[in-house]
Amino acid sequence: MSALVEYLISGVAIGCGFALVGSGFVAIFRVTEVINFAQGTFAVVAGFVAYSGLTSAGAPQGVAEALGVLAAGALGLAFGGAAIGRKHTSPLASLVITLGLAVTAYAGEIAIWGDQPISFSGLQGDFVLAGAHLLRQYLLVIGVALLVLLGLGVFFTRTYLGKGMTACASNRFAAEVVGISVRRMGLLSFALGGLLGGFAGVLLIPIQPLSFNSDIDLAISGFAAAIFGGLRSFEMALVGGLVLGVAESLVGGYVQASYETVVALGGMLLLMLWQARRRVELA
């Protein structure tokens, strides 16, 4: 029983991280129709910058992590400039650009932080739930992720800027008609995607050490979470992330750690096929 609780809670925590990465995919896709395959890079860079802030600059943990998140946001803006900065760049061309940027970023990451996995301690200590000893960092990840996603909901439904971005997602031509710059909103969405990826990076790095190529796993899991909601729903990205995180954790705990990603993604695929069939039946 205690093992199950441990797998469930750790799965939910990891799933929240996937949901944050997935929400980054959603934020960018809704406005620009670009699938940003550099989404995992934002998480890795945020984790690495936070690590440098802690170890080299001696900054307090919260400050170092905030710097990491902001750095990811700035990187998102820069990647956005490269991907959609030129007018009439097709979403497919932008996708290839983000893929190229993600691979190119490896060089910088290796030059600055090396090629070995990096981690730092998160929230110290553990707590007991139903006989299971759990890291307090799990609670931090779950709490912060839910707050960030709640804030995202408030941003898109209550703020004028958020509504402007939703307007671009709803009808790009109409947005231009009323004077909204779809390109600027696209850049903003990339910055937002960077921040969301950044939160995932600084929250997950104490649980899962990150290396320069961890972006692939994060991007695949985040993309799977995002695609669960058709790349348009933040709520469904959260659900997708949690399903994936818990499935991974259970497979890793009860079967074998090396199978966890494959089995979890396979399960996700089956779930999406069922979802698609249901949609067809309802239509």
Binding site: G164, T166, A167, S170, N171, F173, A174, V178, G179
Partner: peptide, 22 residues
Amino acid sequence: PEGRHLFYDLSVEDNLSLGAWR
């Protein structure tokens, strides 16, 4: 524009207020 081109996911009030974007 021809065909209205509203923001169909948003409320009427939001559609109107976005008309004053500038």
